[in-house]
């Protein structure tokens, strides 16, 4: 996905971002957002039913 283009003589240490960490981070922000979306869509639906 990502590459570095450093200019130093000794190449810097590389790293690997665990996929699990990325999935966890997206889940952590995605779950509350999904809750908010669900609640808001439920409320918004009253515009057409209420």
């Amino acid at each position: 996905m990502s590459t570095a283009h450093g200019t130093s003589a000794t190449p810097p240490q590389t790293t690997h971002t665990p996929v699990g960490l990325i999935a966890f981070a997206w889940t952590l922000v995605g779950l509350p957002l999904a809750y908010g979306l669900y609640q808001t869509i439920s409320t918004a639906s009253k515009l057409f039913t209420g």
Binding site: M1, T14, H16, T17, A25, W26, L33
Partner: peptide, 20 residues
């Protein structure tokens, strides 16, 4: 400062954690 190989898709959830 991220080392080479860091996955940039970890940054949007960091930003969302604040903005949410």
């Amino acid at each position: 400062v991220a080392r080479p190989g860091f996955n940039r898709w970890l940054i949007p959830p960091a930003a969302l954690a604040v903005h949410l």
